[in-house]
Every structure is written in structure tokens, then in C-alpha cells.
Amino acid sequence: MIYKTYVKRMIDFLLSLVGLLILSPVFLALAIIIKLESRGPILFKQRRIAMNKKEFYILKFRTMKVDTPKDTPTHLLKNPESYITSVGKFLRKTSLDEFPQIINIIKGEMSIIGPRPALWNQYDLIEERDKYKANDIKPGLTGWAQINGRDELPINIKAKLDGEYVKNLSIAFDVKVFIKTVLSVIRSEGVREGQRARYIKK
């Protein structure tokens, strides 16, 4: 499939490069604010699973304090709000914390659209995705499962949605997911935190 093999990567690279150039002043401003508000690095790195189950480090703007337990999903923390910084709440609500993943896309580790990369220790999700060949493509900044429930979904349903994306992968389907993602962000959907959250940030 020409789109999957060549065109998708070309679109990812060009759009991400343009996005990085345009958003560089915003990146710089956010970096300064994050550094001034709390100690610690500007970027947060976390081990995730890429295509063919290889590991890579996903990049995000740091939204939590440096003493937050590592490799633990936010919803499993006893009191997640106590770990999130003030600017972090804004970044997570607006999804601006995800923007540094543009670098992951430029490097070829991720795609703009695809299954969200699982944590290295989410063995149940990784195994379930194998059934649908969802581990055989690049993970994405956003994906079909993301706009259909995100992490409120049971593992088997999430993996099934990822499988639907793999089966229907095309430029038209990617455009559909992208538009729905933009609308979701504008509506501030999927921004609640904690064990009772409707949507869980990952």
C-alpha cells in the first residue's frame, strides 16, 4: 500500500516540521514557564512501545512534580492532583503537553495518526493489540481509540478500535481522525484526572 509505506511518512515529516517551526515561539514560552514554576527538566521522557514492539522514549512537556512515581499511569496514583503542577493542569487540559511528540514524529518513531503508544509495562494492552496487528504500525500522536473513549475503555475494546484503524488505514481515514481530534481538543474533552475520571491522560 503506497500510502501506508511511503506517503504517510512523508506527510508526517512535512507537517511536523512545519508545525515545529510555526510553534517554536510557543514551545519556548512554555519551556520558560515550566522551568520557572517548579524544579526539574522541561521535557518528560517515558519508555513506550513503538512499531514492532521496539521501545522508544516519548516526549512531553513535564506536567508533574519530579517526585511523581515513574511508569505509573495517572489514574493509578492515590492522589494525582497533588502531583500535577499548576501550569501542568493547563497543559493537560489543552493537550499542549503532547506537542513535543512532534520531535518523535520527525525522528520517525511516531506518526501523527495511529494507536497511542503503550507504556512498556502495559503487557495486557500490548498482547491484546497483537491480535489486531496494531503493534505492526507506528504509534500516533492521536488515534481512532483516542477519539472514541480514550483510556476509559476496557483493554479489549481499545485494542479492537486500534485494529479497526489498522484495517481501515488510508488518507481519508487519517483526515477523519485528525478533524475529530481537533474538535475534541476544542471542546476540552478527555481532560479529567484520577481514578474516577471519565478520561485518563496517558
Results as ranks from 00 to 15, higher is better:
residue 3 Y to F: 15
residue 4 K to Y: 08
residue 5 T to G: 11
residue 6 Y to K: 11
residue 6 Y to C: 08
residue 8 K to V: 03
residue 8 K to G: 01
residue 9 R to A: 09
residue 12 D to S: 04
residue 17 L to Y: 00
residue 18 V to F: 13
residue 20 L to N: 01
residue 21 L to K: 01
residue 21 L to F: 14
residue 23 L to F: 10
residue 29 A to P: 02
residue 29 A to Q: 03
residue 29 A to W: 07
residue 31 A to I: 08
residue 32 I to E: 00
residue 36 L to T: 00
residue 36 L to V: 13
residue 36 L to H: 00
residue 37 E to S: 09
residue 38 S to I: 06
residue 39 R to H: 10
residue 46 Q to K: 05
residue 47 R to G: 06
residue 53 K to W: 05
residue 54 K to C: 09
residue 55 E to W: 05
residue 55 E to G: 07
residue 57 Y to T: 08
residue 58 I to L: 06
residue 59 L to Y: 15
residue 60 K to C: 07
residue 60 K to L: 10
residue 64 M to G: 00
residue 65 K to I: 10
residue 65 K to T: 13
residue 66 V to I: 15
residue 66 V to F: 02
residue 69 P to A: 04
residue 71 D to S: 11
residue 72 T to Q: 09
residue 74 T to L: 14
residue 77 L to R: 01
residue 77 L to Y: 02
residue 80 P to A: 09
residue 84 I to R: 00
residue 88 G to Y: 08
residue 89 K to F: 13
residue 92 R to C: 10
residue 97 D to V: 11
residue 98 E to S: 10
residue 101 Q to L: 06
residue 102 I to G: 04
residue 105 I to V: 15
residue 106 I to H: 01
residue 108 G to T: 10
residue 109 E to N: 12
residue 115 P to K: 02
residue 116 R to M: 13
residue 118 A to N: 13
residue 120 W to M: 15
residue 120 W to Q: 09
residue 127 E to M: 06
residue 135 N to F: 13
residue 142 T to L: 05
residue 142 T to D: 03
residue 143 G to W: 07
residue 147 I to G: 02
residue 148 N to M: 10
residue 149 G to F: 11
residue 150 R to L: 12
residue 152 E to V: 08
residue 155 I to N: 04
residue 157 I to V: 12
residue 157 I to R: 06
residue 157 I to T: 15
residue 161 L to M: 15
residue 161 L to R: 04
residue 165 Y to S: 04
residue 166 V to G: 02
residue 169 L to E: 05
residue 172 A to L: 14
residue 176 K to Q: 14
residue 177 V to R: 06
residue 178 F to K: 02
residue 184 S to R: 12
residue 184 S to F: 09
residue 191 V to D: 06
residue 192 R to K: 15
residue 193 E to A: 12
residue 194 G to C: 11
residue 194 G to Q: 08
residue 195 Q to P: 08
residue 200 I to M: 14
residue 200 I to D: 07
